[in-house]
Design a binder for these strands. Sequence first.
RNA 1: UGUCCCAUGGUGUAAUUGGCAACACGUCUGGUUUUGGUCCAGAAGAGUUUAGGUUCGAGCCCUAAUGGGACAACCA
Length: 567
Amino acid sequence: MNKNNPEAAPEAVKSNFIHQEIDKDLSENKNGGAVLTRFPPEPNGYLHIGHAKSICLNFSLAQKYGGGCNLRFDDTNPVKEDVEYVDSIQEDVKWLGFTWEGEPKYTSDYFDQLYSWAVKLIKNGKAYVDDQSAEVIASQKGTPTTPGTESPYRNRSVEENLDLFERMKAGEFAAGEKVLRAKIDMASPNMHMRDPLMYRIIHQAHHRTGDKWCIYPMYDYAHGQGDFIEGITHSICTLEFEVHRPLYNWFIDQIVEGERTPEVRGRQIEFARLNLNYTVMSKRKLLELVQKGIVSGWDDPRMPTVSGLRRRGYTPESIRNFADKVGVAKRDGIIDVALLESCIREDLNKRVARVNAVVDPLKMIITNYPEDKEEWVELINNPEDESMGSRQLPFSREVYIERDDFMEDAPKKFFRLTVGKELRLKGAYAITCTGFKKNEDGVIEEIYATYDPETKSGATTVTRKIKGVIHWVSAKHAVDAEVRMYDRLYNHEAPAAQKDADHLDFINPDSLTVIAAKVEPSLKDAKVLDKFQFQRVGYFCVDKDSTSDKLIFNRTVALKDSWAKKK
RNA sequence: UGUCCCAUGGUGUAAUUGGCAACACGUCUGGUUUUGGUCCAGAAGAGUUUAGGUUCGAGCCCUAAUGGGACAACCA
């Protein structure tokens, strides 16, 4: 039994091109047949559904090949990083159901090793200290179509470079005064090979190494080496790093130069990142939503973050299933959020209890039901799962029904209530609508009905077919609840991909609607994150803002509604 | 006037590695149902961007074109 993904184990994980690459490596007996992957977030933000895809990929690769997956924080830039993020990332990965190998790793753990390898490069004439400003260095880079020019400091002596680099480390220089660069090829058609920076000076405390360092390695000089140190065999990353691959290999070539052949030498493989329509996925834009107060925080239920989805009511299983269904390829496309929604519906359908909750209450008075009578009726908790049993619900003369379950002028295909029509209050009696009352504004205030005592659910002797069934909640016993109805955050399919517009131009003003609902009394003791199907309405879960005095539910996703389409 | 990557129904991914293009989501029928949900049965929808080539045979291999994307942070 693999420790990852313990329960659900879709052994038939869809095959993808990475499997084929790994199969090939294995058939050539590379790395002694080992497979070790890693998930390497920078702790500078919260994880989102795109990271979840990568997490599922890396861990499922480890599972498939009997290997492992490390969690490594790529913490090479103290100005952007924070422990708040390392904590949330660990929480999210665990919540998704995965267990990384050993302790979490940190690139900062390798700073000493990285430094000594840098010294090796200098000694081998493969790195030099450059005194030029960022602007000058940038201008010398050339463009993708024109070669760059060499820095005047490129041919400093090894001794001078060694001395300068040590003094950089000792803190003798201000930020920006000096950098360490790899000496490769300023005319390379690949911009990343034009003497890339290895180290820059940053006088800022690091969340783990404190003030020990004032020089920090760049991504390109740190990532592959981190992989090398950990023995990562397959370094899976997204497409934009494709052009970094030659550099990834070059640096490892330099550090193994003159050493004995390493047992494990990993390789970078790139896949297309996840894109979802009607949402943005970049940390920068997500941060913008948070900072501008467009959402309530990183875990706002409208956010595509793992914490947002969790709060919204998504389950780890549904997200893993989603990650499996979107597949892995090198073509970048846009996934329809409908797929994500179908995954959570599929999961919740079979596991959560049905309850009666009226989201837009309209009072109905059953005029022939005795004023002070109440009785209990029984309802099945989940028709998909008999073992979930049933529960008792109070019934009385006045009940709330859904406002849109009544129509004054109903079309022929309307299966719900209109004057003169009979239907069933689910689990209780058949009722017939006898009339309604409007206020001065023409808004229906309450409706009237009579019930047929012979039609009580379970005990009925009546055999006539009653087409419509609606949910309800006894007015006297109803519990008030705030319900937060969520819609897509953006009203444009690709909010981040518009030339002349900012993603904020496409914010859906109606992405959150707060309503006052009437829910059945059994819900009074619901705990945060408890999940339900509000019968005929959708899937809901208790929000973290909920208290015993004030119940708050989030709508995770609506039920499919083929009636809404017909209208 | 560069280098690299990509191209299969509406969307996403497959195709036993050169052998009748499949699955999921979505859409549409019909049935079941005390949820217009679920479930069940079925349907429509691509001949694989284009042009050449290799081959008995090409979605798959080769060449080119076209279209899309990545690359010029002291970010990752």
